[in-house]
Nucleic acid binder design. Structure first.
Lengths: 118, 118
DNA sequence: GATATTATATCCACATCGGATATAGTATCG
DNA sequence: CGATACTATATCCGATGTGGATATAATATC
């Protein structure tokens, strides 16, 4: 996967970025992604159901995530759930987006926007 | 200006962030902002005219920038230009947005998205 | 004087988003 | 065991932000 083609995905939609980062560690189902993102951001980012499921559809179509057949032990499972896993391409896109955001922050710092680091 | 009210502006529209950062150093006119942003990002961010002038209207309404009456020496000026300056509030919002973006990058790093820093 | 560039402004179509709504399975508790 | 709350997925609607096209006109170049 050449680096160029990753650029076609950038800038990545904010919701898509959060979903990919939430799946970076572990496979998760949709509802769990909402909770995980909220938890990790101390409640600052609360993905709505509409945003979540539409984002998941797009990420699947783009091959950035896939739906897994693996499920947890039945006593921990819930038949309604659909579990998702980040793909290598998804990881590469998330990495490229993180780099893009980092450059944005550096640009702001270089022009004195952030005190204590200008 | 309490920190809470800044949150109402977040997340800041990407174009608005770029405009505020471009005005961080110097007053500029619209067309110059497009060129400055393109130059600073090595051509990766090219604000379209439509995006620029609508973004400027919003930033004016929100009090994040203002139009200045000061103009350069007549031989360097162009009567068609409208010059803009970032306000203290605009600077505070840009700073808050930079902080938000930085936290996003840190979150991605904490979950192993960015190699060499996880 | 013709042409290209600079400069501002508006319109249209497309993508993304939050919130509302729908449907139904699962857990809790009296 | 029945009511109620929570979990879980999915779709629809309206609002916002964006690039690209279009318009208009002043300025610079040749």
């Amino acid at each position: 996967m050449p680096a160029e083609s990753l650029d076609a995905f950038l800038p990545l939609a904010p919701a898509a970025f959060h979903i990919l980062v939430a799946l970076a560690d572990d496979d998760r189902h949709g509802y769990a992604i909402i909770q995980e993102v909220a938890s990790r951001t101390d409640g600052r980012v609360t993905l709505s159901a509409g945003t979540l499921y539409r984002s998941i559809q797009r990420l699947l179509e783009q091959g950035l995530i896939l739906e897994t057949r693996e499920r947890p032990a039945p006593e921990l499972d819930d038949q309604r759930r659909r579990y998702y896993r980040i793909t290598p391409r998804g990881r590469a896109v998330a990495r490229a987006e993180a780099r893009r955001l980092d450059q944005l922050v550096k640009l702001a710092r270089a022009h004195g926007i952030v005190p204590g680091s200008a």
